[in-house]
């Protein structure tokens, strides 16, 4: 089982809950905006604490009644909708941020391979604010991969992109899914996207 997840948390007036167990490949959390899909990802990443439930990813318990690993010990590669690159670091330093924090024997992809895989070699000296949405998203994916994640979390990574860029990043994500064989938890409200990428679909909300 790649993702075995059962979560509940009250956020203001909203009750966010999710319960699913899915196999390898890409699991899409599909539902309307505001259904709490991002909160589910944040709880899996350890950025938000569930009231109860459990989070087990690829056999490792990240959260249950007694265990609650901090985000830095969960080895999640989180790709945010807004890329969320560090504005005070050039692209290369953004990419290296997580790599530096990973022990060498845990790394499974090299800097050069990541750069080549994502086609971002020409961006390394740039500042994040000078990147287009699609470029920023590719760098964000690279930054996540270089932290040697055991699984990926993707929060509407295409939502802030125009159509040609969407197609480009969609292809990148499909390649990450097929070539790197990482379990991916993918949030989207776009039916087309989900149909093209998902191995499993979990409706939320």
């Amino acid at each position: 089982m790649s993702f075995d997840i059962d979560l509940t948390r009250q956020l203001g007036a909203q009750r966010v809950s999710a319960r699913f167990a899915t196999g390898p490949g890409l699991t899409a959390l599909f539902g309307p905006s505001g259904a709490g899909k991002s909160s589910v990802l944040n709880m899996v990443a350890g950025l938000l604490r569930p009231e109860r439930g459990h989070v087990v990813v690829a056999g490792q318990i990240l959260f249950d009644g007694t265990i609650a690993l901090p985000p830095e010990q969960r080895h999640a590669g989180y790709v945010f909708q807004d890329a969320r690159l560090f504005p005070h670091r050039r692209v290369a330093q953004n990419l290296r941020y997580g790599e530096r924090l990973t022990e060498e024997d845990r790394r499974w992809i090299s800097f050069d391979r990541t750069v080549e895989f994502l086609g971002i070699g020409h961006l390394l000296d740039r500042w994040p604010r000078s990147l287009s949405g699609g470029e920023a998203q590719r760098v964000a994916i690279g930054r996540a991969l270089l932290s040697a994640p055991r699984f990926l979390l993707m929060d509407e990574p295409l939502a802030s992109l125009d159509r040609p860029r969407r197609e480009e990043i969609l292809t990148v994500i499909a390649r990450v899914r097929d070539d790197l064989k990482l379990p991916i938890l993918y949030v989207s409200h776009d039916r087309d996207e989900v149909e093209r990428l998902a191995d499993h679909v979990v409706p939320i909300g």
Binding site: N42, G46, P71, E72, A76, R84, Y97, G98, L153
Partner: peptide, 21 residues
């Protein structure tokens, strides 16, 4: 943007490291 600190945490940074960097 506190979400940047969250992003740093998911990349393996302890709270103290995220603060410093």
């Amino acid at each position: 943007d506190r979400r940047l600190e969250g992003a740093a945490r998911t990349l393996g940074a302890s709270p103290w490291h995220a603060f410093r960097t």
